[in-house]
Amino acid sequence: MAQDGSISMRRPLKLLQGQTALLPGWLILIVAYIGTILWTARISFTASRSIPVDTFVGFDQYARLFRSNRWVQSVENMLLYGSLFILGCLIIGFLLAVLLDQKVKGESVFRTIFLYPYAVSFVVTGLVWQWVLNPSLGLQKAVRDLGFENFTFDWLVDRDRAIYVLTGAAVWQASGLVMALMLAGLRGVDGDLWKAARVDGASAPRYYLRVVLPLLKPSIFSSVVLLGVAVIKSYDLVVAMTSGGPGNATELPAKFIMDYLFGRQNLGLATAASVVLLVTVIAVLAPLAYVQSQRARRIRT
C-alpha cells in the first residue's frame, strides 16, 4: 500500500488477469475455428482421397463438384427446402403467436404444446414422421381404413414429393420457435397502439398486418437468421427420416459432405463442398451484418 512516490509497477499484472481468463476462448477461436477452416480450405485444393495429400490441383475439385449431379441436386434441394421451411415457420409461427396474444385462457398450455417439438432431437422428429407417413401402415392406411379406399399419401417414397414432407416435418419441429420469438415481440408492442387503432376503426387483422407486423421486424430478422442457420446445418433430420432418398430426392449439402468425408473417403471433393457452403453463408451473412451495423450506428448517433 505504501508507495514511495514513484510509479507503481502493478499495471501489467492487472491486464494479465483478464487476458489469462480469455486464453481458452482464444485457443478455441484460433485453433478449432480459424485453423480448421484454413486446413479444410487447403485440402480442397489437393487431390486428396482417403488421406490428405499435398498434390495441388487448383480448382479441379470445385469443377468436379459442380459436375456432380448429386451435389447440384442437393444444392437445389436445399434452396427449395430452405425457402419453404423458413416461409412455413414464419407464417405458422406468426399466426400462432397472434392467436395466443388474444388473452386466451390456458395460454401457457397452448404455448407448451406448440413449442415441445423444438425440445426433441431432429432424429426423433425424423423417425416419428417416417413412421406416420409410412405408406403401408401409416396415415395412408388409416385413412383408407376409414372407407376412403382410393386415398393416397405416399409422398415419403415419391421422388418428386419427398422433399415436401421433409420440409413439413421440419416446420412441425421449428415453427414453435418462431411463435415464441414473435410472442415475445408482441408482448413488447405498446398496448395503447391497439386502443389507438380501435379508435381509428381498424379491424384486428388490419391492425396486426399494418401496425404490428412492421414492429416485429427484429423478431422476424432473428427468426430468419436462426432458421437459416438450421437449414444449412440440416443433417440429422434427413439421415433419420429419408437417408437422402428416394434416390437423391432429399439429399442436402451437409449430408453430401459427411458422406464424402467419411463414407466415400473423398476428402478433396468433400472439403471443396464445405468451402462452397461456407462461402455461401458468408455471402448471405455479410450484407445482413453490414445492414445491422449500419442501423446500430444510426441509432447511436
Binding site: L22, G25, W26, I28, L29, A32, Y33, I34, G35, T36, I37, W39, T40, I43, V225, V229, I232, K233, A254, I257, M258, L261, L267, A270, T271, A273, S274, V275, L277, L278, V281, L285
Partner: peptide, 22 residues
C-alpha cells in the same frame, strides 16, 4: 474474440470436422 466466436455460431460444422478429427 467475442466477434470472432459469434461468427462461429453461423458456420456449418462440416467445415471444421475433418481437421478437428485429426
Amino acid at each position: 474474440l467475442f466477434g470472432g466466436l459469434l461468427i462461429g455460431l453461423f458456420i456449418p460444422y462440416q467445415v471444421f470436422i475433418y481437421p478437428l478429427v485429426r
